[in-house]
């Protein structure tokens, strides 16, 4: 395996751009930086850096998983890609159009073509609306005629397997299970016939037995309609099932990106390795062994560290280098990029 692995030293910006497939990307995020203002006490404010120079592309019909722990910036990046958050620096391009600084009132077309599915199907659906009204609402905003609205609502319900559609259309969300509610959330996104959907932890609040159905449904939508997905998750195992490529985020940066198989079978960043080691798969031998863990927890606030964001927890860190010099993404095999000064050692050790 390692024979084909080759380290290059091209600048991060160029190599990140090279991850796209031959066709033009649908979404292109370049050098994104996001800083949140927070209150610190009554009069003072502080800054929390959420994203630090992140670049990512999503091709047409591609699913990219953003994997990371809370505070890694994965949800923020998803919202930047929808221009729900304007970045402090960097460029957001949707289907060739630069939307970085476009005024909100000019983004009506984007609000139709790009959708989001939220994590919590219990709080993201208005309990006083029937399912029909929930799904119809965006079409009213779009000015779609009544008869066409009805057909599209039923088609969307059928697309998410809530059949017979008229029966589910008349229900209220509280009458449905978590899995069914999440289907309503997906139907609401689908009804505008989007090109791009951000799915932000769409299965983390659903019972285990319903998760696969929802992921399979998203997969079907992707293949049948050619929709591009940004799948935001903390569960790297589900990313393997659902995504073409995986980007691993830590503290506001992408530390590793590649095909799902590359990242899971040949993880090269110490954080990716730790993330994979930490996952308990059902195996009765697990209880007889201690897991190799990285110590500590990600820092929760303040400015970005000067060097590698993972320095404070990294088992392989090189003091004097990693804490001073921020490692850039390097291509170690075609399409597989890692931001780590140790990457050549790790490639060698496989």
């Amino acid at each position: 395996m390692t024979d084909s692995v080759r380290a290059t030293h091209a600048p991060a910006q160029e190599t990140a751009a090279a991850t796209a497939t031959a066709t033009a990307p649908l979404i292109s995020l370049e050098g994104i930086e996001v800083v949140y203002q927070i209150r610190k006490g009554f009069f003072r404010t502080g800054q929390v850096h959420a994203l630090n120079d992140v670049s990512l592309e999503v091709a047409k019909g591609e699913t990219v998983a953003l994997v990371g722990e809370s505070g890694s910036g994965k949800s923020t990046l998803g919202r930047v890609s929808l221009r729900l958050i304007a970045p402090a620096r960097g460029r957001v391009v949707f289907d060739g159009q630069d939307i970085t600084a476009a005024p909100e009132e000019s983004l009506g077309w984007l609000r139709r073509r790009a959708q989001i599915v939220f994590q919590d199907p219990f709080s993201s659906l208005n309990p006083y609306f029937r399912v029909y009204d929930l799904i119809e609402e965006p079409l009213i905003i779009d000015g779609v005629p009544a008869e066409e609205r009805r057909q599209r609502v039923y088609r969307a319900l059928e697309a998410v397997d809530l059949v017979p559609a008229p029966r589910f259309a008349s229900k209220y969300p509280t009458m449905m299970s978590g899995g069914q509610r999440q289907r309503v959330g997906i139907a609401r996104a689908l009804v505008r016939d989007p090109d791009y959907i951000v799915a932000d932890e769409p299965v983390s609040m659903i019972d285990a037995s319903s998760r696969v159905e929802i992921l399979n449904l998203l997969r079907t939508i992707q293949t049948e309609r050619g929709v591009s997905f940004l799948y935001i998750t903390h569960d790297i195992a589900s990313a393997r099932t659902f995504a073409d490529r995986i980007a691993v985020m830590y503290l506001g940066t992408i530390v590793e990106i590649g095909s799902a198989a590359q990242v899971i079978d040949r993880p090269l960043h110490p954080y990716t390795r730790a993330l994979i080691n930490a996952i308990p798969e059902p195996d009765p031998r697990n209880r007889f062994r201690h897991r190799e863990v990285v110590p500590g927890e990600p820092p929760t606030s303040g400015a970005f560290p000067r060097g590698c964001p993972f320095f404070s927890r990294c088992p392989d860190r090189i003091p004097g280098l990693c804490d001073i010099d921020r490692p850039m993404l390097q291509e170690v095999e075609p399409g597989h990029f890692v931001a780590c000064h140790r990457v050549t050692d790790n490639v060698a050790s496989g």
Partner: peptide, 23 residues
């Protein structure tokens, strides 16, 4: 059995199988 088969695995040879029905 179905619960175990429905879990996405890191190194699965077969894709996870959905569990039919609702609780």
């Amino acid at each position: 059995r179905l619960l175990l088969a429905s879990l996405p695995r890191l190194r699965a040879t077969t894709p996870p199988q959905p569990m039919p029905g609702e609780p």
